[in-house]
């Protein structure tokens, strides 16, 4: 039997609680000012009509207006399309590459460095570079490369059908490196005995990946999946810089719509509507995460 000492303010003080608090204080203040207070303020603002100088309360008007905007449906569909493409093509790629790279015996460091390189490039710079690569004329960078293989030039960002896949391609390239590093680290924690045992049983490489590696990575994959879904639901940088939502609203995403509400018109800045849609998005994503963790808890336990 161990006796837990009773906690009192005095023991807290003697145990160095005060200095802990003082050390934490700058961080707490920074968070309160730059993170928590804007969150609270945006909830307040979603119930107001404001030009940031004078405000009036309008109840749920902003929500009604946002939900009746015909562009909202387009934006939701576009965002889901982006998320789906990113999920189908962008999500398995880093897992695959990480598994392959972990099998490589020599020069592992070189491969990880190469894979991580795109992450080092500032995102805006990367997008502007790709915008240049995506030049739709036959002499554009990608079109020249396609030309060598006898493939006709593609319109990339300049056509409604190809604009969104082009954004996903760049986003996948930009994000893969970070995910690969995480999966590589997770692969290190797979006990080598499991592979040895599988080998003794005569398992092929694909059997080992399917029955040993992937189940062992399950926890990490679940986390990465929800992180990716949350990130793609908030995609903004790519449509904003590549296309501004065009052509013909083909790449307007929910976050871009929020931005447009707030900033497109210098004078009619609808900050109330922008925050109302942000609040709606936050609620949807919070619910999604909640359900997801409930489900994966169950799967992980079984």
């Amino acid at each position: 039997m161990t006796r837990t000492p009773k906690r009192t303010p005095a023991t807290w003080l003697r145990g160095g609680g005060l200095s802990t608090l003082v050390f934490a204080l700058p961080m707490v203040l920074v968070f309160a000012v730059f993170s928590w207070s804007p969150i609270v303020q945006s909830f307040v603002m979603s119930l107001q009509k404001t030009n940031l100088i004078t405000s009036e309360w309008v109840g749920l008007d902003n929500f009604v207006r946002v939900l009746s905007d015909p562009l909202l449906g387009t934006a939701v569909v576009n965002t889901l399309y982006f998320a789906a493409l990113a999920l189908v093509f962008g999500f398995p790629l880093p897992i695959l590459l990480a598994v392959l790279m972990s099998e490589v015996r020599r020069g592992k460091g070189v491969y990880s460095a190469l894979a991580y390189l795109p992450v080092i490039i500032p995102p805006v710079v990367a997008v502007l570079l790709w915008k240049f690569f995506y030049d739709a004329s036959p002499t554009g960078v990608f079109n020249s490369v396609l030309g060598w293989a006898g493939i006709p030039p593609q319109p990339w960002l300049q056509a409604q059908a190809t604009a969104m896949p082009s954004l996903v391609l760049e986003a996948t390239w930009a994000a893969a490196g970070g995910s690969i590093i995480i999966y590589l680290a997770a692969l290190l924690s797979v006990p080598p005995e499991l592979y040895d045992a599988a080998e003794v049983d005569g398992a092929s490489i694909w059997h080992k990946i399917w029955h040993v590696t992937l189940p062992q990575l399950r926890g990490v994959i679940f986390i990465m999946l929800i992180l990716q879904v949350l990130a793609t639901a908030q995609v903004f940088l790519e449509p904003f810089l590549f296309t501004g939502g065009g052509p013909n609203n083909a790449t307007v995403t929910v976050l871009l719509l929020i931005y447009r509400y707030a900033f497109q018109n210098s004078l009619g800045g609808n900050y109330g509507e922008a925050t109302a849609l942000s609040v709606l998005l936050a609620i949807v994503l919070a619910l999604l995460s909640f359900v997801y963790f409930k489900l994966t808890d169950k799967w992980s336990a079984s």
Partner: peptide, 17 residues
């Protein structure tokens, strides 16, 4: 400006479709 924004879409539609 708001109406200009609506017309942006029209111009883009004609040029890309």
């Amino acid at each position: 400006q708001e109406i200009y924004a609506l017309l942006d879409t029209v111009v883009q539609a004609v040029l890309t479709d």
